[in-house]
């Protein structure tokens, strides 16, 4: 078979949703570190968000399945730890989708600038930890809704 070019494969991977936050793709999340052909084998380097993130094995499975569905049989996934994942790698497109979904995107200030639901800046932290390792639990003091904040790391 003809080897699809790497750019095309990046496009395919951009259609693989994150299992916990399905509105963003694994590419948006910044965890796909490299896609390269090694002879007839496609090698994809993936980095974990948090060491203990239970989604890691599901993400590997989803990536592999997506590539096989496109007809790629020789796929090798490798874990790449260094440099460690940072929220700086979240794409601008991903950040916008998160906010639209109701999750405040990471902000260098260390907290959300506004409530993702009503837009008020009057927000407070409930807990540094939330529903998944990558999120913190916040609430809006204007609309009183609780919301997730994708924390900076």
């Amino acid at each position: 078979m003809v080897r699809p070019d790497v750019q095309t494969i990046w496009g395919w991977l951009d259609e693989v949703p994150d299992p916990e936050i399905p509105v963003i793709s694994v590419v948006d999340l910044g965890i796909i570190r490299d896609v390269a052909w090694d002879g007839d084998t496609l090698e994809v380097a993936i980095t974990p968000t948090y060491s203990g993130c239970p989604a890691t094995s599901i993400i590997n499975l989803d990536v592999e399945t997506a590539l096989r569905d496109r007809g790629l049989d020789n796929v090798r996934l490798k874990q790449q730890l260094s440099p460690p994942w940072t929220t700086d790698w979240l794409s601008a497109k991903g950040a916008a989708k998160l906010e639209n979904y109701g999750i405040a995107p990471p902000s260098p200030a260390g907290g959300p600038s506004k409530c993702p639901r009503c837009g008020s800046g009057d927000v407070e932290r409930v807990s540094q930890f939330g529903s998944t390792p990558c999120k913190a639990h916040w609430r809006c003091l204007s609309c009183l809704e609780p919301f997730d904040y994708f924390k900076c790391i």
Binding site: S51, G52, Q128, F129, G130
Partner: peptide, 20 residues
């Protein structure tokens, strides 16, 4: 509840580090 979630998340990080 918040502490429960925080403790479970901390444990998860530690177990993940153990794996490595």
């Amino acid at each position: 509840l918040e502490e429960d979630i925080a403790l479970a998340n901390t444990a998860l990080d530690l177990i993940g580090q153990t794996q490595m």
